[in-house]
Design a protein around this nucleic acid. Structure first.
Length: 873
RNA sequence: GCCCGAGUGGCGGAAUGGUAGACGCAGGGGAUUCAAAAUCCCCCGCCGCAAGGCGUGCCGGUUCGAGUCCGGCCUCGGGUACCA
């Protein structure tokens, strides 16, 4: 046989699988089903190495499950709505739809070379009207069930481009195109009532045994259940209609350490005061000159404005506290107002020092460890709530208590005195789904002057996006389309207008997994198909989706169940979750400074301050010289940012096409699996691809060019044992997502086979086993080997080998001997040798005798059977 | 800022609380060859001639025994609700 020629062999087997329909999923009640799903890609146009890693992992599982007798569903589709298509439309003058579908075609082409076991008959894109029309139908169902509502919410507003910006489009508080300082602006927006499910989404995490703990923990913290006290401070001489300030606190035990009340700039009281105070109006306006991102707000300098108003402390009417408007208080959480306790909150302490407010401890450390108290210039004292502390200003005199106990007692005490009530709150906010953009699923409602907001009739779905739009000005083209908005009211028939907001693309990806079970149906799902295929048995994707996408999907499954689109058993849609690490790559960045300038739009002049814009460069645009990095075009110095998530906007995406072209898909697959543990981030380097290719060629050579062996050889039994051990180890590796260790094990097994002097029969069995164990990872090579070795049918369908437990244990084991925890010798003993016999052998070793000079006796001998012996002297 | 992770040779990494560095890359040496490619074999944590000592980001703790468990840091990565 000649050397292995991937370029010729791989298409042959891809064709064979397609002809045989090997990966077409069919409902088969006689077999257990297995639904394996990788998070579907955004069709950027280029398959990158992270995709190859993600989809190869899923493919290993899918192929393995197929050969263990499951009816496997392994579908693929496209998360096709989103910002990049509109950016491309503006930059390249192409329609977002045309751009997206062209990208899908090109990525599908790239996918086809990888030899993935996908059922392409179920493919769809979320921008297909057949898909988003069903999504609109569900939106209407959700409306009817009260899961959708409208309210005002803030967005990032670019005052020059007169458009809403995504957080990603705000850089250092400025619009990415215009450079104008971004403001917060309120719009009426659509929301899903995910908060109705806060408790359920939290409690059900406990049942997700096959989810990573870190993801469950992140979701728990995100939902953020807290028990606290809601109560009011009475306001002295407040403006008309304001006689109290309602606050929420999770630390009512620190109420007697309060030193100020803070309210959000968006609080109704702040807005009321604004009318008579130009200074406060200016302060509030300044606070609103910031994007909506939580990170930006939390990192901003903490500022306050003394309103001059005072409130009375509920437990001491003579005690007055000042009311500040503070930029770090969110209107979205709690009541939009807090009391500050500087002694036990670092942020409040910083604020108190800045505005010269009192610092009053309510509790102190139970033991004097000499720390500097907050009153004396130290940090805020914030021990874990479970630590006992001494309450010096508690509700029950000087007592030692844990924070948790004191909080419960404080709530009870306050309730008994009629000061507030204990309430449970969640940090989780309702899901704002409105987007003021074209390339998304239209929200299927109509605004009528007489009827108000009315859902579109289901028979009129899908509400399709109009094709004839232009992107020559920023903003949502749906707003200035000549006719699309004009429609008759579905209720009264009067002239009315369509909603022009489209849905957040997270909506699209929150139910696609369910749609794959009946992708072409005229309803969102089909009961029989959903019942058979749901849930997803194994979901695989990037850890960057740990909170939003996964939480939204969990909510959606519940909402779909409430509307009869999913069975009760599917409210947790993903039985098992594996979060793979990201493939990272350096970013090459240059910076350009711009001077300050002014722009006048519609008579309004906006001042643009000077600043810096960042530009990103492709690896081929840069060169390394003298240990530094420069731009090839003009020689400017390039800043190298190491190890960042691959993203198209940062231009650090690695294209796997070269590796596939040069070595074939099997090499690319083998390499990404062997490279690193799947859950870990990897900094991409291509230095191992050559080695992977060599190994596959070696396997081919060893199997096909084996010299004629006698029927029975030496070491047949040893080789048989090795076969079973390899089956066991590789199978365990696959089942536990330890693909890199499975690969390492296969390297070792290949070496064993190459060196074996066993006879023909044993070697044939070993070779077939090797092909089989490699088949989920390098399926083309495995098929070719299988055919060469006279296997029946496709290896893809052949039953997975099973390890015989009796063949896995050796008769003898090597026991390391430690003296005081340091390895000093080892002995080989029968596996079942009793402890006392082991001890006698250990005592006779030279190392132990040397350690016990002068007839000393060991203090202790620890024998861990089959593992280790430790002699303590 | 807050929440969640990660850190082991020159590099990717392995290791149910039980011989740290499996397997692979890079490197060194050798065989084969007229020569090369390809292939095969050997060496390869650090210090030390050796005996031996030191070693899993840093500091401390628990344990007969810690990469692994606990406490405190450092650095890097992800998320932070309109990137997907």
């Amino acid at each position: 046989m000649s050397r292995y020629d991937a370029a010729a062999i791989e298409p042959k087997w891809q064709q064979a699988w397609e002809t045989a329909g090997t990966f077409t999923a069919t409902r088969d009640e006689s077999r257990p089903k297995y639904y394996v799903l990788e998070m579907f890609p955004y069709p950027s146009g280029n398959l990158h190495i992270g995709h190859v890693r993600n989809y190869t992992m899923g493919d290993v599982i899918a192929r393995y499950k197929l050969s263990t007798g499951h009816a496997v569903l392994h579908p693929m589709g496209w998360d096709a709505f989103g910002l990049p298509a509109e950016n491309a439309a503006m930059e390249k003058k192409v329609h977002p739809g045309a751009w997206t579908y062209a990208n899908i075609a090109s990525m599908k082409q790239q996918f086809s070379h990888l030899g993935l076991s996908l059922d392409w008959s179920r493919e769809f894109a979320t921008c297909d009207p057949e898909y988003y029309g069903q999504q609109q139908a569900m939106f209407i169902d959700f409306m009817e069930r009260g899961l959708v509502y409208r309210k005002n919410a803030v967005v990032n507003w670019d005052p020059v481009d007169m458009t809403v910006l995504a957080n990603e489009q705000v850089e250092d508080g400025k619009g990415w195109r215009s450079g104008a300082t971004v403001e917060r602006r309120e719009l009426t927006q659509w929301f899903f009532k995910i908060s109705d499910y806060s408790e359920d989404l939290l409690a059900a995490l406990d049942g997700l045994d096959n989810w990573p703990d870190k993801v469950k923990l992140m979701q728990r913290n995100w939902i953020g259940k807290s028990r606290g006290l809601q109560f009011a401070f009475s306001l002295i001489d407040g403006p008309q209609g304001h006689d109290r300030v309602e606050v929420y606190t999770t630390r009512p035990d620190t109420m007697l350490g309060a030193s100020f009340v803070g309210i959000s700039p968006d609080h109704p009281l702040a807005k009321a005061l604004e009318k008579d105070s130009p200074d406060l109006a200016a302060f509030n306006a300044e606070c609103r000159k910031m994007g909506t991102a939580e990170e930006e707000m939390e990192k901003a300098e903490k500022k306050g404005f003394d309103t001059g108003l005072r409130v009375r402390h509920p437990f001491d009417t003579a005690w007055e506290l000042p009311v500040y408007v503070a930029n770090f208080i969110l209107m979205d959480y709690g009541t939009g107002a807090i009391f500050g306790c500087p002694a036990h909150d670092q942020r409040d302490l910083d604020f108190a020092r800045k505005y010269d407010l009192p610092v009053i401890s309510t509790y102190a450390p139970a033991t004097d460890d000499g720390m500097s108290l907050p009153e004396d210039g130290g940090d805020a004292y914030v021990p874990p709530k479970t630590d006992p502390v001494i309450y010096v200003r508690g509700f029950a005199g000087d007592t030692e208590q844990t924070g948790t106990a004191a909080i419960d007692a404080a709530i009870e005490f306050c309730e008994s005195k009629g000061v507030g009530r204990g309430v449970t709150k969640y940090r989780l906010r309702d899901w704002g789904l409105s987007r003021q953009r074209y390339w998304g699923c239209p929200i299927p409602v109509i605004h009528c002057e007489t009827c108000g907001v009315v859902a579109e009739r289901k028979e009129n779905l899908p509400v399709k996006l109009p094709e004839d739009v232009t992107f020559d000005r920023p903003g949502n083209p749906l707003n200035w389309h000549p006719t699309w908005r004009d429609v008759d009211c579905p209720r009264c028939g009067a002239t009315a207008q369509r909603e022009t907001d489209t849905m957040d693309t997270f909506v699209d990806s929150s139910w696609y997994f369910a749609r794959f079970t009946a992708p072409h149906a005229a309803t969102p799902t089909v009961a029989a198909d959903a019942a058979y295929w749901m849930n997803v048995d194994q979901y695989i994707g990037g850890v960057e989706h740990a909170i939003l996408h996964l939480l939204y999907s969990r909510f959606f499954a519940r909402a779909m169940h409430a509307c009869g689109h999913l069975p009760a058993a599917a409210v947790e849609p993903f039985d098992a979750l594996f979060t793979q690490g990201m493939v990272t790559h350096e970013i090459y960045q240059t910076e350009i400074d711009w001077p300050s300038s002014q722009i006048t739009v519609d008579g309004v002049t906006t001042h643009i301050s000077s600043g810096t814009s960042r530009h990103y460069h492709l690896p081929e645009e840069i060169e390394h010289r003298d240990g530094e990095t420069f731009l090839k075009s003009d020689g400017r110095k390039v800043t190298v940012i190491p190890s960042a998530k691959m993203s198209k906007s940062k231009k650090n995406v690695v294209d796997p096409a070269d590796i596939i072209r040069q070595y074939g898909a099997d090499t690319a697959r083998w390499f990404v699996l062997s490279d690193s543990p799947p859950e870990r981030d990897v900094e991409w380097t291509a230095s191992g691809a050559e080695a992977a290719s060599k190994h596959l060629a070696r396997v081919w050579r060893i199997v096909t060019e084996a010299p004629d062996a006698p029927e029975a050889g030496t070491g047949d039994q040893d080789l048989l044992r090795e076969i079973h051990k390899a089956i066991h180890d590789v199978t365990m590796g696959i089942e536990s997502f330890g693909f890199n260790t499975s690969v390492a094990r296969l390297y070792a097994f290949t070496a064993t086979l190459a060196k074996s002097q066993a006879g023909r029969a044993a070697k044939l069995q070993a070779a077939r086993t090797l092909a089989h164990l490699m088949s989920p990872m390098t399926p083309h090579l495995a098929e070719e080997l299988w055919a060469h070795l006279g296997g029946t049918g496709l290896i893809a369908n052949a039953p997975w080998p099973v390890a015989d437990p009796a063949m896995l244990v050796d008769d003898e084991v090597t026991l390391p001997i430690q003296i005081n925890g340091k390895r000093r010798a080892e002995i080989v003993v029968p596996r079942d040798l009793p402890k006392d016999a082991v001890e006698r052998l250990v005592m006779q070793t030279d190392a132990v005798k040397r350690a016990l000079t002068g007839g000393a006796v060991p203090k202790k001998i620890i024998v861990v059977p089959g593992r280790i012996v430790n002699v303590v002297v």
